[in-house]
Design a binder for these strands. Sequence first.
DNA 1: TCTTATGCCCTTTTT
DNA 2: GGGCATAAGA
Length: 654
Amino acid sequence: MVLYTMKKYVLNKAARARLTRFDEELNPQQLEAVTCPGGPMLVLAGAGTGKTRTLTYRVAWLVENGVNPSNILLLTFTNKASKEMMRRAASLIGGDVTSLWGGTFHHIGNLILKQHAHALGYKDGFSILDRTDTKDLFDTCRTAIAAAHKDAQLLPKASVLTDLHSYARNTSKAAATVISERFPALAPNAPLILDVIALYEKKKMELNLVDFDDILQNMVILLKDHDDIRDYYSRRFQHVLVDEYQDTNMLQAEIVAQLCSYHRNIMAVGDDAQSIFSFRGANFENILNFQRQYPEARIFKLTTNYRSTPQILDAANSAIAANLRQFRKDLVSVRGAGEPPALVPLEDVREQALFVASKIKDSIDEGGALSGIAVLYRSHYQSMEVQMELTRLGIPYDVRSGMKFFEQAHIKDILAYLRVISNPFDEISWRRLLKMLPGIGNATAGKIWRYLSEPPEAPLDKLHSAGKIAPKKAAEHFAAFIKCIAQLRTIDSPSEAIDTALRGSYERYLFLTFPDADNRLRDLTQLSQYATRYNAADTFLSEMAIQGSEQPMAALTADKDEHIVLSSIHQAKGLEWKTVFVIGLNDGQFPSIKTGRPGSWDEEEERRLFYVALTRACDELYLCYAYTSFAGLIRPSRFIKDISRGLLQEIEII
DNA sequence: TCTTATGCCCTTTTT
DNA sequence: GGGCATAAGA
């Protein structure tokens, strides 16, 4: 086990002077939470009440009061959020908090797991499966089980199996229970589904692979079953701060409980009305249970909203009021009056795109900042028309939904080269690489993998003789591939490895396969650039898998230009814009088609999502819906009708 | 007959 | 981008 050196943290005089401003810069509610001496605390913070601010000042206050930053753990929903908080905390105290551990559960979990991989039976260089890899592996397991049974076509698709399994693990329930409770339609196939899941778990271990849920589950195992490990980390982290507590699941709540078991200085911040990740096992009842779990907990409430005008806030409060399962807390805006949110009926999605784009154009012409505008929607595909219209008008935008940078085919392809070197048992990546060769499809790739994985020789050592299994058509390409892999084995630097894989074999495939090969090649060159900051492939690969959504490329592309944001509401969480357009507010789209009856649990979650969307806006809010589609007349979202009459202002488009 | 390649649908939300 | 049906190939 690695021991960390604790350096004494000394605060300089200038920093102390800055800190006297705390009571001027925080309201009494925030100040009380920030300066709480310790013990378990739950901060119930409504939308726009300065949650991030409170956490940031808390970090600064702790350090100011002599806590070494390396004894603080800050768990956030995205890595970006924790970096931003750390940066601001550092500037508050005019010191340095870089030794603080901050990031997502998965990020911190990966760091801890690396230290103790052997204790859990992993070999060195395990690969982390991202969302798409997980599905791939489930698909191969599904096919294998299907082949052994006649009625296999009844098996659900890999994506359904992935969700089901993940949900079961995140809620600590048996898969069979989840099937009967949440997927009753699948009940007749339950035995077969359980077989697929069992095979998936077995393969993952054999292939030295770790999926996202493993990271959490392994953390729980390490902390619960290994007294020395729990002792070490729970003593080390004198203060544990958790943001977005309403979106933690069973495993995460358990991890938090274990990590703060020694000092019991836990600060959980959350808002039950913004719990929008229950499909992933998140349970806002963790907030309720907090008081049961820590009976001595102090509760703080933040109810002053600094973000939105009273008109926007009234509409949001009115929208969420229909939810029965919630803590009541009406937020009060301190801002001056503004315009009521606009309700905009439009003929169809095309008109909707035209409206949004022309409004944005007007705003720019009047000198408005692009960075103050966002278009939010329920599902990624709803953004397409708006994207087209913005492109036509030459308005720069950044899309934050759909495929992640690291989930794109060409990125995954090139990383597969590095992955088989780092973890030669990575069947997923082997198959991916093999299928790129002409004439090799699923079946042949499977044959070659079975040959490679046969002991006693290691897969990488057997590769040179695997060409004989491939069809003649692939011979030339296969030889080049073998040569490329051999070359890669001698390279440590991930950046150099990417270049080698590109030149040695991938570039040819890229131009033969993708019409937009130029763009993709540019991405890969940038990826290689980015990789120069890592000197070992496995750290590079695991970071890439875990921080998938962060898109570090965006920062590198030097695209510092102003742009508007198109985002799913889920990804917009925690953010704010001066002007917000919420589009596609039609029943069937939002709430989505699968949503249950009014009053159901599903519907309440969708309504919370709606509430999150409305509360992203500071000054201007547009709620757009279409009244026709290719299918005929469609209805506006039932959530719009929940908002009291008079709070919205209907706009007529001529 | 087993495989690979291709064209045409549709698209929840994600660490 | 993924799933699925179908055409083409070996």
